[in-house]
């Protein structure tokens, strides 16, 4: 761009300057207007995922009490439920997994397998009597609390609600939670 020159004898008359300005302004405005519709439509679709909500947590039948050892050792179960993936609906498909255990006192406890640090699938380590995340080494006690304060997970494993139905069926309220935060917030 050339710096603005001082008005001199060659400069167009004010009337002509105005017309020039009007032409430029109109070109920019019309040119810009032609882009509005495609840009807006594109942006709307691009932002559409923001409108999509995660399904609310739901109770899923996981197993029976008899399948859980009485000594507090957790067992891993897939969560089989219906799943919506954009245009597909699948009635019964794995949507996640839980560790389920029966404490020595007989209480049931369920944890989402996803590490609250970054979402990896945590392993149960019998020799450590707890959980260990294979990615960044977060460690958890059997009851899901953080085992090592210096390990990377900001909170303990996410505990899930349990209901026992028909005396022995274990139903777990399956839900995912945002990783990386100290507070446990359901994915929405």
């Amino acid at each position: 761009m050339q710096p603005e020159t001082q008005p001199n004898a060659d400069a167009p008359a004010p009337e002509e300057q105005r017309r020039e300005f009007l032409k430029k302004a109109l070109s920019v405005a019309i040119g810009g207007a032609t882009m509005v519709a495609p840009a807006a439509a594109g942006l709307a679709v691009y932002l559409d995922p923001l409108r999509r909500k995660a399904p609310p947590g739901k109770f899923v039948r996981v197993t029976t009490i008899e399948a859980l050892p009485a000594d507090g050792v957790p067992k891993k179960f897939p969560i089989i439920s219906s799943r919506e993936d954009a245009w597909n609906k699948t009635p019964a498909t794995p949507i996640g997994a839980v560790y389920l255990r029966r404490t020595k006192e007989g209480a049931l406890q369920a944890h989402n397998v996803a590490c609250p640090h970054a979402g990896c699938f945590v392993d149960y380590k019998p020799e450590k009597n707890g959980y260990h995340c294979p990615c960044h080494n977060s460690t958890f006690e059997l009851d899901g609390t953080i085992a090592d304060e210096n390990s990377p997970s900001p909170r303990g494993l996410d505990e899930l609600k349990i209901e026992v139905r028909n005396q022995k069926e274990v139903w777990v309220h399956f839900q995912n939670f945002y990783a990386g935060h100290a507070e446990k917030t359901p994915v929405a």
């Binding site: 691009y46 954009a86 929405a188």
Partner: peptide, 13 residues
């Protein structure tokens, strides 16, 4: 995260 993942969960999008 939703914008990158294309929704609340991993899948087609």
């Amino acid at each position: 995260q939703k914008l990158v993942v294309g929704g609340p969960d991993y899948g087609h999008h």
